[in-house]
Amino acid sequence: MKKSNIKSKHIINHPLFLPLVCLLLVLIVNLIQTPSFFKITIQNGVLYGFIIDIINRSSGLIIMAVGMTLVVASSGGTDISVGAVSALAGAVCVAVLGTGESYRMPYIISLLLPLIAGMVCGAFNGFLVSYMRVQPMVATLILFTAGRGIAQLITGSFILYVKPVQFQYLGSFLPNVPIPTPCFVATFVILITWLTLKYTSLNMFIQSVGINPKASHLVGLNSKMITFFTYVFCSVCAAGAGLISVSRTASIDANNVGLNVELDAILAVAIGGNSLSGGKFSLFGSVIGAITIQALTTTLYAMHVSADQLPLYKAIVVIIIVALQSPEPKRWYYMIKSGISSGRSAREAN
């Protein structure tokens, strides 16, 4: 009896417990409303179903959320330029390949150059935040506004289309592979990040810089360099997400790629149970957060909520999720629990 109590307490206190509960809550609504939601079939040689949609569509957001988590953890601020950076990366990618019947340059360059562009953007953000000590939101605000401008400049303010079919592989399916390619990319990014954090001291360094940069500096950590690195990494992630988005539509619309996605990325970090003031973080929390956001959107589509009411429902669910994760409900839970057990023990004594 007592042992199971300890076990349940352990589960409840696990940092991933509440984010997972929230995701399950969203999915359970579907179980009641649209039972066909969980049906997965093979259609046209690929996996097909709402669940696949969620995983596929959330991949880009997951990648961004991974980068955003590290930025939040190390600097206690957010990078609001990720959407613009993804548009910029997409623009570079299409500019490299051109709009002809075949690629203008080898495909690999169209992957590397945008990622380098993302790196440059991240270096710019990171330099301002860590070395110039500009507030993260203000520093990234520059690229938030200018990034799309640069992207527009590259595309000449046109929507450009890439014709070769192979270009769409990254955003849809590889031939004879039933699983969407973005899932592989997202898994790859999560794995690389997780392994790096696990098998180097980076995890601890980032947390310690996030909690107290000065103290970290005094014990010999290069705090500024670590913060700088997280911003570079975040922008590279954003560029990667941009590449997926561009490949998915086989076109670049610099005005709309990654529009408002920075807010979703920050929300994913928050829903994942991470504190936005920096310090301790959970990578998988953010991943679950990103999936939850996409699950919510797909759920509302599947429930046929009309477009004008959609933002309202989204807002309500987000408020509930965030409120659930705030410290107060946890305190209530323990208060009620201790109230019940003390009542029970009182009864038993009688």
Binding site: T34, R57, D253, Y301, A302, A307
Partner: peptide, 23 residues
Amino acid sequence: LDKQSGDFTQEKGQEVMESFLKS
């Protein structure tokens, strides 16, 4: 059968259509 906003963009239009096709 249904109406849903795709915000005049290709990516959103694609996402909504995927959902329509399943529903």
